[in-house]
Write a protein that binds this DNA or RNA. Structure first.
Lengths: 118, 118
DNA sequence: CATATATTTGAATAATTGTTCAAATGTATT
DNA sequence: AATACATTTGAACAATTATTCAAATATATG
């Protein structure tokens, strides 16, 4: 076996604690879903977009002006966030208006803001 | 200028909305700090480590067994999370026990869990 | 229909990152 | 001291990703 090189010799140092912790873990699929969301939130440009949308409904062009990047870049970010249901949109003529999909996004960011400002 | 190719022609489609949104944004440094935290949370292995530590204090070896990866990999993850004050540790002989640094981490993950399970 | 503007999309590139491997460090035990 | 085991560390590699550029759509207007 390959594992023995890296894995601890005494395979289970605290078997009971491991067992309890293991049983408390959410379903693996939910863990992957959460990781995907956090990965999306882990980019300053996207965070700024979401924070802006928490305050105002804005079109793609507004967002590009606001965070000072290309329209294309903003559009790519919005596509990712649409995919994870973090933002929603409505079309009005040439323009596409984006806004937050639900209040969870705000809560998650607010909680993290608390963490970094304390 | 280079900008004119990508930036919208009508530089400000909704100047008032942009202004309001801009003023509501947190300081840029906090946005970058938050992004760093989310980036760290955006990995399934690290999420599992944090979720396990939310339930039990565990040593590096326990964590490696629990999430079925190498000790080295776990150690690298823990180093990153230590750096962002997401986990804390105490040494006891050969062993190093890790636990969550504060309850914010749990709240952030819990809020996100709500989002993915609804 | 032709033009103008907003948005989307796909490919390419540069940068970041998770894991592995090998070696080093720290701490007990014989 | 020497051995054993837990943990850390650094370098290397493969995979992922943010941005840019160019081109394609979509929608209004002259």
């Amino acid at each position: 076996m390959n594992d023995q090189i890296e894995i601890c010799k005494s395979d289970t140092i605290h078997p009971d604690a491991i067992e309890r912790a293991y049983k408390s873990l959410p379903e693996i699929v939910h863990i992957y879903d959460m990781a995907e969301i956090f990965k999306i939130l882990g980019d300053p440009s996207r965070l700024r977009i979401l924070l802006a949308l928490a305050k105002e409904e804005l079109c793609v062009c507004d967002l590009a002006t606001l965070i000072n990047t290309s329209v294309s870049s903003v559009s790519h970010h919005l596509r990712l966030m649409k995919g994870l249901k973090l933002v929603k949109f409505r079309k009005e003529g040439k323009l596409v208006y984006y806004s937050l999909a639900d209040e969870h996004v705000e809560s998650i960011i607010a909680e993290t803001m608390d963490h970094v400002t304390e």
